[in-house]
Design a protein around this nucleic acid. Structure first.
Lengths: 218, 218
DNA sequence: ACCTGAACACCGTTCAAGT
DNA sequence: ACCTGAACACCGTTCAAGT
């Protein structure tokens, strides 16, 4: 073991985080343990503690890494509508690259510097349209809340991408049709299918419409 | 122990779920274990397995219970704007009643029948304004994504309601001002404060504006 | 039918010890 | 400085056993 280590060079925080991310995508986040990560990295569990304060610290670092890997688009030459769509796309791509790790950045406190490039660019788009810093922050929060809710739904199809089209609520159309709720029954077919990309586009269109009105009013 | 049991009557799934919810609010979700729940209920760990398949099954039941406790408002006499606001309010109240358990219903798959009353009422409001079942489902999903993202932010101030005003991203205004991102620095004050109720209202207003436009167009 | 004792493999984390 | 062995209290879960 010590040999394999020296052969590969020193252990590092980055190597540990990468191993943890790889493990999470293979086996799921619940299966992740420091013991398993250590195994994968070829080291004994306790060695991790030189690079990682905690299991929680590791989880934070994983979320951070996923967010850092996001490529923030160049928005200079775009309309604001295109820019917001491109930002959403880039965020979605980063999340989909690590669906099992995604909850770490979607649900843990985003206090990471890693989120700032995206925030900065979004604020640039919004303020370039005449919003004040204050208004831009409110609009940013609505935008992010929508993105998080939408991506959580997409990625919350937790176990290993079970099926591509997943229900909003109860499983089968039949269960919904027999639920005893007339409008749910009417919409059973629609409710039991979810095209994540289309839903994202639909929501972005609503968001854009609302923002356009707000911009016009100012 | 057996005495205490028979004195109180039989153990039940509901009693276990209630104890688990109470424990989660006191000690946090990460501290929740079947051993601790059993302790609280006055029983040995293994007794729980007669009422609960799994720890996961218990967590599902907890989320379900929180959602079931939601009082769906009577919307008959309201405008659709008021109805959507009342629904959001009711959902928010249910979530805030169990902030530590909230992630269970906000991030786990909502396949629960418990969500159907709220879905039914929302669909009623939307279709009453002339939306087709299909359109109503799309709009519903945007609405729910926004609510989930927003409430997750509010409640994600995880540990025991640490502070009422919480940051979107990096902690202190100072850290944001020194982040090297000019627009983030400009908005540092706004970014470091978050009035959750006001943000919810702001987002609902945007959602309502977008929906109004969509209704007018059809 | 309902609860328990004993036991399992596994977990996060510590501390003192090796090189 | 970096890694490890031994050990800790605690997990989720099982199985066979009590009443």
């Amino acid at each position: 073991m010590a040999q394999r280590r020296t052969a590969r060079g020193l252990l590092s925080r980055g190597e540990i985080v990468d191993a943890a991310l790889a493990f999470a995508e293979e086996a799921g986040l619940q299966a992740l343990s420091l013991h398993k990560v250590a195994d994968r990295v070829g080291v004994r569990t306790m060695s991790l503690y030189r690079y990682v304060r905690d299991k929680d610290d590791l989880l934070d670092a994983m979320g951070d890494a996923v967010l850092t890997a996001m490529t923030v688009p160049e928005v200079e030459s775009m309309t604001w509508e295109e820019a917001l769509a491109a930002l959403a796309d880039a965020f979605r791509a980063a999340v989909r690259a690590h669906p099992h790790a995604a909850p770490l950045l979607l649900t843990r406190r985003i206090n990471a510097p890693a989120s700032l490039p995206m925030v900065e660019t979004t604020l640039k788009v919004l303020t370039s349209q005449g919003l004040s810093a204050k208004e831009a922050v409110h609009v940013l929060r609505v935008y992010i809340a929508f993105l998080i809710g939408t991506l959580l739904r997409e990625v919350g199809t937790a176990p290993t991408y079970a099926s591509d089209s997943s229900a909003l609520s109860a499983g089968s159309p039949d269960a919904l049709a027999d639920s005893g709720f007339p409008l749910v029954a009417d919409a059973a077919t629609e409710l039991s299918v979810c095209d994540h990309e289309a839903e994202m586009k639909f929501g972005l269109a609503m968001f854009t419409a609302a923002l356009r009105e707000r911009l016009g009013a100012s």
